[in-house]
């Protein structure tokens, strides 16, 4: 049984109780994915599985046999930061930096969801293409808690990424 983590194959743990989060942090020493509550309430542990955002604390590692996981460590390419990582720095979208990896992974997954037309609680027209307004971004990112209060900078940074994608 194996799993792809940021493009590299890894053996899954023997103990079926090991969460994907603990597998990343403790077995693989990929500590960029954070543990904030271990019960699916804070979003700090968000990673991308085949492009979809999931809470790795609520996922058992063995369930992800054969899947491709991208963590915060896998976003920069060849030493160049992902545009969203750069935007977080520019907009000061963090203070302590602990919720940051989850926010960034979550935002990337969120943009993918919107592209395929997934509606949110604040989407007014379910038949039209999704427009990621500020309110939509706030709604769709509300599963990622930040206690330092970097919310404005986080949404600004994500807004910049979304705008750049639209322009491209």
């Amino acid at each position: 049984m194996s799993i792809s983590i940021n493009g590299a194959l890894a053996e899954l743990p023997q103990d079926p109780r090991v969460s994907l989060l603990d597998f990343l942090r403790e077995d693989l020493h990929l500590a960029g994915t954070k543990k904030g509550c271990n019960q699916g309430a804070c979003g700090a542990c968000t990673v991308l599985v085949d492009g979809e955002r999931i809470l790795s604390c609520l996922a058992l590692a063995v369930q992800y046999d054969g899947r491709a996981v991208t963590t915060i460590e896998g976003l920069a390419e060849g030493g160049v930061l992902h545009p969203l990582q750069q935007a977080f720095i520019e907009h000061d979208g963090f203070q302590c930096g602990y919720c940051t990896p989850g926010q960034i992974c979550s935002a990337i997954g969120m943009a993918t969801e919107a592209r395929r037309g997934a509606a949110s609680h604040v989407t007014a027209d379910l038949t039209a293409a999704v427009t990621l307004s500020r309110e939509e971004l706030q709604e769709r990112m509300s599963g990622n808690l930040c206690r330092c209060g970097a919310h404005n900078g986080i949404i600004d940074a994500i807004g910049e990424m979304v705008a750049a994608e639209l322009a491209a």
Partner: peptide, 17 residues
């Protein structure tokens, strides 16, 4: 911008645990 920003956005800042 924060000087430790690049570390933090890459999950490379090492916390206690």
């Amino acid at each position: 911008s924060r000087l430790d920003g690049p570390l933090k956005v890459q999950g490379a800042a090492r916390f206690a645990a």
